[in-house]
Amino acid sequence: MNIFRLAGDMTHLMSVLVLLLKIHTIKSCAGISLKTQELYALVFATRYLDIFTDFISVYNTIMKLIFLGSSFSIVWYMRRHKLVRRSYDKEQDTFRHFFLVLPCLLLALVMNEKFTFKEVMWAFSLYLEAVAILPQLVLLQRTKNIDNLTGQYVFLLGAYRAFYIFNWIYRYFTEPHYVHWITWISGLVQTLLYADFFYYYFNSWKNNVKLHLPA
């Protein structure tokens, strides 16, 4: 465990927990894409298939449980909670899961470390995580004005991506045989998807104005 990895995990954890806590407190999920949240729940469910078979560390197991629990709780709130679901922008959040899930599944069947159910699901979860933010970014573009909640959420997710890349560079130089092409390439693609958002986020922060995305 290095400092970049820990910082990455913590910002990732904060992004999910901040979102869950705010939805729970203000009973609103306006601006949040249910499609993206469902894709993340699927990402965690397919990646952590090893949770009961391979023990890595107490930290690892607890974090996996928190990510699974919080991502499914968010989906539950947005679909089932009678106040929260009323604030959901259903008409604007039209991205189809299918268009992301199917290509990722096909890619995972072809590109994986080993052709076993667990390894294919692991590769699938990495490919899907890389593109799962797309429905959220489309929703941001459509609704234009972004409240603090959504801005902070995407900012924390972007910080998590950046820290993980530093973590991979660090591990590559400090650990023998640390090579994970699938993780790195999908992680890089995911980070690039945030670059555009970050450009506008920092500009609005620098100029101290409310964040607006161009059409």
Binding site: R5, D9, H12, D50, D54, I56, S57, N60, M63, K64, F67, E113, W122, Y164, N167, H177, Y178, V179, H180, T183
Partner: peptide
């Protein structure tokens, strides 16, 4: 040189 132990990231 990849084994399951290397999949220690989240």
């Amino acid at each position: 040189p990849q084994n399951n132990h290397e999949k220690d990231e989240l």
